[in-house]
Design a protein around this nucleic acid. Sequence first.
RNA 1: GGGGCGGUAGCUCAAUUGGUUAGAGUCCCGGACUGUCGAUCCGGUGGUUGCGGGUUCGAGUCCCGUCCGCCUCGCCA
Length: 610
Amino acid sequence: MTTPTVDRPAAYRRTHHCNELRLDHSGATVTLAGWVNSYRDHGTGLVFIDLRDREGLTQVVFDKADASDELLSAADKLRSEDVIAVSGTVRKRDGGPNPKLATGEVEVVASTLSVLNKAKTPPFQPSETEGLPNEELRLKYRYLDLRRPKMQKILRTRHRVTKLARDYFDENGFIEVETPILCKSTPEGARDFLVPSRLTPGEWYALPQSPQLFKQILMVSGADRYLQIAKCFRDEDLRADRQPEFTQIDLEMSFVTREDVIEVMEGFVRRLWGDVLGYEVPTVQRMTYREAMDDYGIDRPDLRYDLKLHDISDLAAKTDFKVFTGALGKERGVVKVICVPGGAEKLTRKITDGYSEWVKTFGAGGVPTTKVGVDGSLEAGIGKFIDSIAKDLVERVGAKPGDQLFFGADTYATCSKALGELRQKIARDMGMIDESKWAFVWVEDFPMFEYDEETKRFYAMHHPFTAPNPDQVEAFLAADPGDRETIEGIVSAGYDIVCNGSEIGGGSIRIHDSRVQTKVFELLGISPQEAKEKFSFLMDALQFGAPPHGGIAFGLDRLVMHLAGTDNIRDVIAFPKTQTGADVMSDAPSAVDETQLAELFVKNLPVPTK
RNA sequence: GGGGCGGUAGCUCAAUUGGUUAGAGUCCCGGACUGUCGAUCCGGUGGUUGCGGGUUCGAGUCCCGUCCGCCUCGCCA
């Protein structure tokens, strides 16, 4: 830490920070400044202070043998979180070292004390390492919470990640460009945050859900390789890993294929994990979306453990078990199974009943189960209904005596979702997850479109600018919009990178051909007029010489969560929002003055009372 | 919009089946103490049990509503 020493009162002209002094400094005269982390007052005559700054702790001692009565009585009054500066001499501790502190061999014998700012008694002590107060209080007094070493460490990790991003991508020819925060609202995707325009009453800006369109335009502009640490805004409900404003490490590259993007990004991930955690990321394996859904029931599989889903629809069809045959009678009906090694003993009836209830939240009817007996037969649960296929089933999934089987029987989508979620829950419950492991995987070959039964239309699975895989372009352009099967079979040039079951980045090769873009809009039910109105700038740009291009965006918050070892996104954001989108420290959002609204020609509607 | 959990002293928590004056640790205040490092010891202050109703002789406890926080489904890439 370098601090200018000119034009500052001598009292807090620091010579060292609080994690710096060692035995080598013995005899030196030093000045430290910081917060009173704790005090140990032995009465008139001897007072110990642990002084804290960003870097660490140093013990300061006020001793009658070396200090005036005035100094001692001042030290006597010190309390937690007072801001002080101390000058004195470094010496080896009289009372023996404290192995818990990096500076534990020494202490500073105070000769002067300046109380720079007396603190009110804080509602909680940043020095407490256990028994944290509830999160709402931490958020309300965020400045106290952030003083905690653990939070300081996370802030640093986050800084390190953005610094590494800038360094790494700079080395690889990327330039950082800022894109607007006040943007045009576009259809598709999440709900926009809107900002009224004072200069053109009745019109609105939208905050960007991502810099997607601008970064593509930058490619058309010849930027070639673009990087931005970009704030993004989505007005949707929050989750443990989702905030309404979040940050992406956003990138785009020209004249590249999917392989080029993956190579550069993998290098970034390797640099991050290597520099921050000292972990060497091996070549990241690849998996198609189809494989991910078939084997893991989710498009972001956690590969730290196995526990795959097996399709046994063909076997299930041979039974008279109505749950199975009923499901197979549905459109795209399947029967799948998870085999839990040793589950028969560990998973009690109470637990398996709980699973059955739990999967209902994902739309499944329940989760039939049975266990494998010592002779390989199926015992208990639904065993007796599917006895006829027991042998083939056990062989198919490689089940052993003592294993527990969980079945899903429903449409492919519902069955995958329910068993995919159950797979993760069982792994957690049975302690099958090796927390020291890092399992990365690229998921690729996503379908371009998903059909929604309710609205009877297609939606872009990624976003509407994702290109079809190169080998699919002709088939795509030729496809009949009414031919659902063909359309759903078109695979995109998109890719997601997944770490331990969480999506940390996603991107695609973009459409640079306006014929393809027009066709995508047609399929999404965006009329040529609407496309022109909403996206004409992009459509125009694509016609003025757009290079082939593609990119990716990493979720910075999620990256830092992994690197910091937390599962709470609020921990990695200095000033996060609660689940209702509130900042409890500053009390945003809040009502505004009527005159402010009038100036914007905006009026509040009455909120319906429930 | 739906489901679940929680809200008791500044903080972390306890309070039996609905039962007397709602307790403990910590913080804070006062006192003692020269080698602590979660200092120790003695004493003390501190409560609208989130809020509003209801049931009851009696409610922190039961019921209804509401607010706030967390988790989650839908939503979101």
